[in-house]
Simulated assay, not measured.
Amino acid sequence: MKDTDFVNKVEKSGIVTVDLMDFAPKQEVMFFDIKNHLYMEMIIKEVEFRKSIESVDWDSFRNKLVAIGCSIDAIIPTWVYMLIADKLHGIAHFADYSSENELKLQIWKRNIINADFSHLIDQKVVVRASSTHDPSLYMLVTDKLKPIVKTLMYGEAGMPKVIYKRNKS
Rank of each mutant, 00 (worst) to 15 (best):
K51R: 14
H37L: 03
N63T: 01
K26I: 11
V47E: 11
S71C: 04
A74Q: 07
F49I: 03
P77V: 11
D33Y: 02
I34K: 07
I76C: 07
I53E: 08
E28G: 04
Y81W: 08
C70A: 07
I76D: 05
A85D: 13
K64Q: 10
W79A: 09
S71T: 13
S55M: 10
S71I: 10
I76E: 12
R62N: 15
I34W: 12
I34V: 14
L65G: 00
M42C: 11
S52D: 07
I53W: 04
R62E: 12
A85R: 14
V47A: 13
S60I: 03
I44H: 01
N63E: 15
N36V: 00
R50K: 15
I44Y: 04
I72F: 08
W79Q: 12
F31W: 12
V80L: 07
W58F: 07
D59A: 09
V56C: 04
A67D: 05
D59W: 05
W58K: 08
D86T: 11
S52M: 05
L83W: 04
I43F: 12
R50E: 13
R62I: 04
T78D: 15
I76L: 11
S55E: 14
A74D: 06
I44S: 00
D57L: 09
M30I: 01
P77M: 09
E41M: 10
L38T: 08
I34N: 04
I68E: 05
N36I: 00
E54M: 02
F61T: 00
D57T: 05
E54K: 08
D33R: 06
E46F: 10
V47N: 13
W79S: 10
Y81K: 02
F49H: 04
K45L: 02
F32C: 07
I76G: 02
K64P: 01
K35A: 10
Y39F: 11
I43Y: 12
F49C: 02
E28D: 09
T78P: 06
